[in-house]
């Protein structure tokens, strides 16, 4: 994992692996910590020696954040992953294209509307099948290419999305 930003209880710290030999050295914020003897006593527990002292904590990974409990204190940790927006899951697509030729039978959004991942943008009919076209990611509708009752070919752009308001390339990258 490349250097990353980790958020703990809302506070952001930079974390980076500095060395692996003779022991793992991780830079957290400005300080470099030496870690040895990393063990997992149970699936939910992690134990290691941090700068000479033993740390043992409970851990659970939620969908977005990690919950850690050490010495009777729970911490919510978020590990930023550049690219975690899931380009591999088509969640960065700008142009939403038709998978089949068809007709727009209902239009649920207008240009300029903010849309959320999974939101239905239009209903199209192809081969007697009505299909909802959903937003592949959060964003703003930049352009509606296929208007109500218009027909389109396979591969035609139906809707174009722009980044959601307040979001830009630099903010998304290297998060």
């Amino acid at each position: 994992m490349p250097p990353t930003k980790t958020t703990i209880n809302g506070r952001s710290v930079d974390t980076e692996i500095i060395a692996r030999r003779p022991a793992l050295a991780v830079k957290i914020g400005e300080a470099v910590h030496v870690v040895t003897d990393v063990r997992r006593p149970s699936p939910s527990e992690i134990e290691f020696t941090l700068d000479g002292s033993v740390v043992r904590g409970w851990c659970f990974a939620g969908p977005d954040e990690l919950y850690v409990r050490i010495a009777g204190n729970t911490h919510i940790v978020n590990i930023a992953r550049p690219g975690a927006s899931g380009a591999g899951n088509a969640q960065t697509v700008n142009d939403i294209r038709a998978e089949m030729p068809g007709t727009v039978v209902a239009l649920h959004i207008a240009e300029g509307d903010p849309v959320a991942l999974g939101q239905k943008l239009m209903t199209v009919e192809s081969m007697k099948l009505q299909i909802g076209v959903v937003a592949p990611r959060d964003g703003v509708v930049a352009k509606v290419h296929a208007q109500l009752n218009s027909t389109f070919d396979r591969g035609a752009a139906l809707v174009s999305l722009a980044p959601a308001v307040g979001e830009n390339a630099s903010a998304k990258g290297n998060g």
């Binding site: 992953r81 550049p82 690219g83 975690a84 380009a87 960065t92 697509v93 142009d95 998304k172």
Partner: peptide, 26 residues
């Protein structure tokens, strides 16, 4: 978009270089 949606010449699109590298690493 042309190559990842229409031609299939390229497999994945990334919004920026950081994302491209992260995806490449994955």
């Amino acid at each position: 978009d042309l190559h990842t949606q229409l031609s299939g010449t390229v497999d994945y699109a990334a919004d920026n270089e950081d994302e491209c590298i992260a995806l490449g690493r994955e």
